[in-house]
């Protein structure tokens, strides 16, 4: 069973992030006008049974509501999330990107951090990037493949 969740682009920069271009810019407004409010790009997420067993699982579920910036598919379904660990109130997420020169690296990191910090039990988010094993399309889940097909992406 799945349910549809309307995408909300999350905007604010992560803590300590200080660039000329980001200051004063509202990314959520930009995205709302593009894919954020388009019903065709609703994100399909699993319907979980019962509450999450622990913090790690809560984080894992939450990550299913973080979409790739280019496609209506969650980061876990795209196969970008390699590891989720939780210690006390800190969650460490190890991710990769589809391409070494992925232009969306910062957006994806912001979105992960913003969504995870919405969980009341998570106080700190650490994001690690790895390139090994290299991402390939074989890492996309079946749910992800269906979502991509629906969006007109051949896979």
């Amino acid at each position: 069973m799945t349910k549809l969740v309307q995408l909300e682009r999350r905007s604010r920069a992560d803590v300590g992030y200080e660039s000329e271009i980001e200051r004063g810019m509202d990314f959520s407004a930009v995205f709302a006008e593009t894919i954020g409010q388009n019903p065709d790009f609703a994100l399909e997420v699993p319907e979980w049974e019962g509450p999450p067993a622990d913090l790690r699982e809560a984080a894992w579920r939450a990550l299913h509501e973080v979409a790739d910036p280019e496609f209506p598919i969650s980061l876990p379904d795209l196969g970008l999330v390699y590891e989720v660990e939780a210690v006390d109130t800190t969650v460490r997420v190890t991710i990769t990107f589809t391409a070494s020169a992925c232009p969306c690296v910062e957006f994806i990191k912001w979105d992960i951090r913003e969504r995870l910090l919405e969980e009341p039990s998570i106080e700190e988010v650490v994001i690690e990037v790895t390139w090994d094993p290299p991402w390939t399309t074989s890492r996309i889940t079946e749910r992800g493949r269906q979502a991509l097909r629906k969006a007109g992406v051949s896979i």
Binding site: T96, S100, W131, D132, P133, P134, W135
Partner: peptide
């Protein structure tokens, strides 16, 4: 360096 080489070579 191990966590990078395979991705580079794949591309």
């Amino acid at each position: 360096i191990l966590f990078k080489t395979r991705k580079l070579l794949e591309e």
